[in-house]
Amino acid sequence: MDVKDYRKRYEADLAAHAASTAASLRPPGVAAAAAVVDATQQRLMEIKRVPSDRADLSKKIQALLATLGNEKEPTVVRLAALKALGAATFLGENFAPYHADYLNTLRQIARPGTDPQLCEAALGVLAAEKDPDTQKLLQRGLQDAKFALVPPAKALQLLSYDDHANISELALSLFNQTDDLGVKEAALRVLATDAKSQDLFAKLLEDKSQPVSLRTLSATGLNFLNPQRFADVARTIVMDDSESEDIRDSSLGALASAPDNRALQDDSGFHDRVKELGADNSLKDLSVAARRMIAKP
């Protein structure tokens, strides 16, 4: 079958399926609401339609940009347009003529008053582009909640896309002030790019009273910033039977994957203990990690 015919048939099938789904969701007797649902479904189908050639692609991208920037369109339609434009950015040269318009449209959306879901999606794209104005907006929201466009954990995640964004001090301050575990986790992910965070990571990793997620993130952060220092702390943790098995397992796994763990391989006390752990059938993942470590040449 010809590709174009196949595409047409596939699109017709999709349209029929969407129409029947919309009909099944339709509250009886509410014709106006049904019409809106139908119109939205049609718009979504149109957005998902694959352009037939390069000229059609050009028209399609321009239409998507107009839809994305149109405040009168339903949020679900604008989100679909944003998703389609995100896919189109992978077209490289073919998308190049629209890149500036795309970013400009996103900046119009990433502001107070926009639907939160759409605003967050736009901020996500701009943050990935390391846009300084977007970084400023996100930081302002973290410093003063009344300016926040997204929740703090999300803002930290978006800011962490750029390790030149200078947010480690802000992340540390949030980490110390908040009781929200999600925000603390996001802050630690940011701090993993700052060599000055080593002491904090070592302290959290050694502190058995900390939540496992924070200790695991600290292990990852310390291993990234200073593998040698991580190895020293991790050795103690692996040897400590009173430690949580999760933390011991993660630490041993990281040690086993280290590019140079000869110092530990030559450490007979550590080596003997790892052998014992590998032979201990009452342990699950920790035993597996121990056997992997022993098997390493």
Binding site: K130, P132, Q135, K136, D162, H164, A165, N166
Partner: peptide, 10 residues
């Protein structure tokens, strides 16, 4: 000094 790379470049 102390500014984010994007802000310094701007």
């Amino acid at each position: 000094h102390g500014r984010a790379a994007g802000a310094a470049e701007r």
